[in-house]
């Protein structure tokens, strides 16, 4: 018994042949494949996992930041007796940075309070600009 929902359109769709792939496709794929084959093994390993690497680096950065907040770096470096003289500058520089960020005031606001919104705003602006460019490029395509 024939299916009543099936009609001439089903037959037409079923008879549709595959489309011809553009002639540029094969050379493009082979070029990319050869370029990929020439890359070092570790680049080939990382390349398709860029997002994962980026997330991992972000996680590590946040962990380091958390550690810096928990363990005072100035005190940590000053407590190590065998550090070369150059490294002894680190606590000094960190101390100065801390003083500037927390204690210097601009219109009753600390530098840190002004810096954080500026960083966030510039990040948002960059994301917006990048997505606008991507969108315009896509539309042009």
């Amino acid at each position: 018994m024939s299916d009543p929902n099936k009609d001439w359109l089903d037959a037409e769709l079923k008879n549709l042949r595959d489309l011809e792939a553009p002639e540029t496709l094969l050379p493009r794929v082979m070029k990319t494949v050869r370029q990929q084959a020439r890359k070092a093994w570790w680049v080939r390993l990382i390349d398709p996992r860029t997002d994962l690497c980026r997330s991992f680096m972000l996680g590590v950065s946040l962990l380091v930041l958390g550690l810096f907040l928990m363990v005072s770096p100035a005190q940590f470096f000053s407590d190590v007796p065998v550090l070369p003289a150059l490294l002894k500058l680190i606590p000094l520089l960190l101390g100065i940075a801390g003083t500037v960020l927390f204690q210097v005031k601009i219109y009753h606001f600390s530098v840190l309070t002004l810096l954080i919104p500026a960083i966030v705003l510039s990040y948002v602006f960059l994301i917006f600009a990048a997505s606008t460019i991507q969108r315009l490029a896509g539309v042009r395509k």
Partner: peptide, 18 residues
């Protein structure tokens, strides 16, 4: 292997493209 892959692309490119 390159040649084999090229043949492979030729065989399947229309289907994948469609």
């Amino acid at each position: 292997e390159d040649e084999e892959f090229e043949t492979f692309i030729r065989n399947y490119q229309n289907m994948v493209f469609s």
